[in-house]
Simulated assay, not measured.
Amino acid sequence: MKPYPKYFDKIRVRADPQAEAKAQAPVCQWDGCHEPGTHRAPVGRLKEGEYFRFCFDHVREYNKGFNYFSGLADSDIARFQKEALTGHRPTWTIGTNSGARSSPDFAQQRSGRAGYYNRVRDPFNIFGDQRTAPRERKAKPLEAKALETLGLTTKATGADVKARYKELVKRHHPDANGGDRGSEDRLRDVLQAYRVLKRAGLG
């Protein structure tokens, strides 16, 4: 038996990542140092995103003496710290837009009752005159065509539709017109229109 069988030749040892990083790192930027610069250190204020490259010992020494606010007055430092609370974004004090708050529209929107009436539909007029004027119902294309066939507008109620339907059926029924084909076609259109409006809740 061989002391080193063939299987040992296939075993790979992972390279040390720190050794690879040292080999690829630039030279330390500390004066007189020739070690690999494996650690980054910030350059300073107004140069964000720029870094020095130092070896481990020199980056520790640099960080001990690093001061982001060096050269700034105490008032500037205090202002920077205050702005940092909001991420250096502008802020406004509450109530600066007082003109909008005093307008009647704003008051209407803020009051509980007005807000409730604006949000809730009232098809049966339960709230009476307290609500604003009801919005005109917007008919879908098929419903608008059906209303037009019956000779009605979008303001027509269910009772109006039913009354108009009965009137047109009596007028265009074949028995009342002696079997006139034109009247028969018109009756078919009226029946179809009424079916559409009934499905929409207007019949």
Rank of each mutant, 00 (worst) to 15 (best):
A163P: 09
A156Q: 07
N125D: 15
G158C: 01
G95I: 05
W92F: 06
S111A: 01
N97C: 01
R135C: 03
T93S: 06
K166E: 14
Y165L: 04
S98W: 15
S103F: 02
E167Y: 12
Q109H: 05
K145C: 06
P104D: 13
E136D: 12
T96S: 13
S98D: 13
R110A: 03
Q109D: 05
P134D: 11
F106G: 03
G158D: 08
A144G: 07
E148R: 14
R101K: 11
R113W: 12
R121E: 10
A139P: 05
R131Q: 09
R137T: 00
N118A: 09
E167V: 06
F106I: 01
A163K: 15
N118R: 10
G112C: 00
A146I: 07
Y116D: 07
G95R: 04
G151E: 08
L152A: 08
I94T: 14
K140M: 13
G95H: 12
R101M: 09
Q108D: 13
T91M: 08
L152G: 08
A156S: 07
L147W: 06
R131A: 11
N118D: 12
P104A: 08
Q130T: 07
G158K: 06
G151K: 07
T154C: 02
F127T: 09
K145I: 13
K140D: 15
N125G: 11
A133E: 15
A139H: 02
Y165C: 03
Y117V: 02
E143A: 12
A144S: 12
N97S: 15
P141W: 08
G128R: 06
A100Y: 13
K155T: 02
S102K: 14
V161Y: 01
R119M: 03
T93A: 11
E143F: 06
E136W: 07
L150R: 00
G158A: 04
S98N: 11
T91F: 13
D105G: 09
N118C: 04
R131C: 03
L142Q: 15
D129H: 08
D129L: 09
S103H: 11
T153S: 15
G112L: 05
P134N: 01
A139L: 07
A114V: 03
K140E: 15
E167R: 10
Y116L: 07
A146G: 04
T157W: 01
A100W: 14
N125L: 09
D129P: 14
A133G: 05
K162D: 01
T149K: 06
V120W: 03
A100S: 13
K155G: 02
S103K: 08
W92P: 00
Q130A: 04
K162V: 05
T91S: 12
P141S: 14
K145S: 15
A114G: 00
K162H: 10
R135D: 02
